[in-house]
Design a binder for these strands. Structure first.
Lengths: 248, 248
DNA sequence: CAAGGTTCGTGTACTTAATACACAAAGTTA
DNA sequence: TAACTTTGTGTATTAAGTACACGAACCTTG
């Protein structure tokens, strides 16, 4: 195994979102520190997926590497949402403790680059079982304890996601290759925290020519089966409107 | 004078935009390196405004400090547009030369955080005279030589600006406290590279209740004087529409 | 195999915003 | 006072946003 040299004062944190057809979830890593002698649990909370970058990789590669490690997936949708360099990132007592035990020798003046990742839940569920990584409903994060400034980073990512989703077709990254319109609607409702009228929603989708109906229908559901649709990035790129509306 | 300790592998670059009522401009710093013996000019090009961060400041403060140094202004509109950590940032021969002479001892693996700055041209013009800093039309940048990856960073910033300007009322940061509607229209046209119909433009502006007409009119112009308007952030915050339109 | 349960898929009327387009009014200068 | 320049305004048409209800298709249960 090749050992890479770490850049001690630069790290990447990934806020990984997933959608289970009901609600939006985020991937968090369990953090636990036990006293070496008596086994007493000193720290038990969660962190975002993140690590230092290596000397020989750029920021995007570092984020990809981290995600590959957690999910086994390549080609995950990844986008920066900000860089953070506050001086007090490691201020809580449990974070200081963690630094003393685990991150010995690392700089405590760290710049973190935040990455927003969107993944198709159906492709990854199996792989996570054997790790201390799991999905948490986005609505639950406010009540959780997260390490360092990770709760802040999480909300920054969530805001960025809500902003982008209105302007770019990135929500589809959270859905499987084909999906029903009800699933799409539920996704937008979960993302934006609103609800839409079904007929109006579908009228809008009908204008998005890059959402294409398939021949396929749902099977084995105890109700009228829904038609499956597909997102086509090619059609999107070709037909995107240059509409300029600077009214806000 | 207090001497600050520099973080050798982290820097901040500012892409500073200004508007002269005709076109969009960017602030660039002249870079020159002469041979110590014969005075031959080894490097002569331009860079963005940027520098390493200090150990005891965060990213935003570093960007503010750099801008204060160049323009004399506080409270400039500042927003991150990305963090860049490519391995080949210093690849051109003249950049290597610069590193050998000027940045001796600095890491060559640098992470740069890009900041987009918007400034009111009318407040700063005087202060720049005595420095090797000047405005260049945005349209001219493609033909210029910029240091390191600064041309790339510039276009990243320009794209971010064009994206944001459609969604947030940040264009007003480029105008003086009061302005005419024609100036506002020219600004949007310069920013987005389009042209608008005057009547339709004004109809749109009429919907933006945060653009407020003043009693004041233009004076001493050789034509019908225009009315001045004001941008009110308070009104904007109160009346912003929560319109959710995810069609793209 | 009929009835009940559940989600799917659709249309119309009304309001609001986007677009295309031309000319008189107010001030300055010669 | 005539010429010049930029300001400021209205209407008709098309496109998009919003509010709202019910029969159709499939499965399950009795």
């Amino acid at each position: 195994m090749i050992s890479h040299k770490i850049v001690p004062n630069i790290s990447v944190d990934c806020v990984v979102f997933g959608f289970d057809f009901e609600k939006l979830n985020v991937l968090l890593v369990e953090r636990e520190l036990k006293d070496e002698k008596n086994g007493e649990i000193l720290i038990s909370d969660h962190t975002l997926a993140g690590y230092h970058i290596f000397e020989d990789e750029d920021l995007d590669s570092a984020a990809s590497r981290i995600l590959k490690g957690l999910t086994g997936l390549d080609n995950i949708f990844l986008e920066q949402f900000g860089a953070y360099g506050q001086l007090d990132r490691v201020s809580a007592p449990r974070d200081k403790l963690w630094f003393e035990h685990i991150n010995k020798g690392f700089a405590d003046r760290i710049i973190t680059v935040g990455y927003l990742a969107l993944i198709d839940n159906t492709k990854v569920t199996l792989r996570l079982k054997d790790r201390n990584v799991s999905w948490f409903p986005v609505s639950m994060v406010s009540e959780m304890e997260l390490a360092f400034d990770h709760k802040f980073l999480f909300y920054e990512a969530l805001q960025a996601l809500q902003r982008k989703v209105k302007v770019e077709p990135i929500a589809f990254e959270l859905l499987p290759d084909y999906f029903t319109l009800s699933q799409l609607q539920k996704l937008y409702e979960a993302l934006l925290g609103t609800s839409f009228d079904k007929r109006n929603f579908r009228k809008k989708v009908a204008q998005m020519h890059y959402v294409i109906p398939l021949k396929k229908k749902q099977q084995g559901v105890a109700h009228k089966p829904a038609q499956y649709y597909l997102f086509s990035r090619e059609v999107y790129e070709k037909t995107r409107k240059g509409r300029i509306s600077f009214i806000i």
